[in-house]
Structures are given as structure tokens and as C-alpha cells.
């Protein structure tokens, strides 16, 4: 389970606040940690992923570079709107570090997850992989 790619299981990125054509948000879900989505300036930055159906989630891991503070919201609707806050985490280190955020969702259900990066250790941050434990 740990290394399967979310993209191949019908999960999609439906919104991303930044975009470099060469580093599209789909890279977050391709299971490959070498490929990434990169923000292109200013905070906050966000992306939203959609599950094929209402899904029970036990935990979410996010593989990032230079992300300082990350917030997760979710909803159970068909639309990517009206989110409720789930959890947030800040990591206290310095710039230039690969950071893994692990969020326990304790089996709560969602159709969308929204990831909001409120601060970074640099002007630009990257997200390499999101993984979900069911």
C-alpha cells in the first residue's frame, strides 16, 4: 500500500494555486518522489485532491521541501468548496530540509482534501508526494 500511487487509484488534483508547466500538480500523486509540484511565489499556497468516492482515511503523509506550516481541510461533498478544518502542523527547522508531515485523520471520511501551505522556509516550496493510509 505504501508505495502505490494515488493517481492510479482515481485520486486527482483539482485545484492548485501555482503552476510551472514543467512541474505540474499531478506530480504530487504519481508515486514518484523525484517529481514535484512547485509553488511560484507568495503564501498561502494550496492544492486540493479529490477521491473517486467518499473515502475513510486513517492518515495522510506529505513529502515536502521547505514547507514550514501545513494545514489540512476536508469535505464530504461533490464540489471542491465549503471545507472544514482538520488539522495543522508547523515544523521548526531551517531552510533546505526535506520534511515529511504525517497527519492522523483517525478514519474520518472525505471526498476532498485541501492542503494549505501558510508559510515556507523559502519563497518557493515543493511537494513531492502525498500518500493516504486507509
Amino acid at each position: 500500500m505504501a508505495d502505490s500511487s494515488l493517481g492510479s487509484s482515481g485520486v486527482k488534483v483539482v485545484v492548485a494555486s501555482s503552476g510551472d508547466e514543467n512541474h505540474p500538480p499531478e506530480n504530487i500523486l504519481d508515486g514518484n518522489t523525484k517529481t514535484f509540484w512547485m509553488s511560484t511565489g507568495m503564501f498561502p499556497q494550496e492544492f486540493i485532491i479529490r477521491f473517486a468516492e467518499l473515502t475513510k482515511i486513517s492518515a495522510v503523509t506529505v513529502d515536502t521541501y521547505n514547507v514550514k506550516h501545513l494545514k489540512i481541510e476536508k469535505n464530504t461533498s461533490q464540489k471542491a468548496s465549503q471545507f472544514e478544518s482538520v488539522t495543522e502542523k508547523g515544523k521548526g527547522t531551517s531552510a533546505g530540509v526535506r520534511l515529511y508531515f504525517i497527519f492522523q485523520l483517525n478514519g474520518s471520511s472525505a471526498t476532498h482534501l485541501r492542503f494549505i501551505i501558510t508559510a515556507g522556509y523559502d519563497h518557493f516550496v515543493s511537494v513531492h508526494k502525498v500518500n493516504v493510509k486507509y
Binding site: 510551472d20 512541474h23 518522489t33 523525484k34 514535484f36 512547485m38 511560484t40 511565489g41 513529502d63 521541501y65 533546505g96 526535506r98 515529511y100 523559502d122 519563497h123 518557493f124 515543493s126 513531492h128 508526494k129
Partner: peptide, 19 residues
């Protein structure tokens, strides 16, 4: 100035060892 900073950072990220 901002564009070159972006390019520099992108290069750094591209060369990160896989996590």
C-alpha cells in the same frame, strides 16, 4: 531578480536526492 531566485531554487529541488 525574483526569476533567477526561482530558477536557482528549482535547480536545487531537481537535484534533491529522492526522499
Amino acid at each position: 531578480a525574483f526569476h533567477s531566485l526561482y530558477q536557482e531554487r528549482r535547480e536545487t529541488i531537481q537535484n534533491l536526492s529522492p526522499g
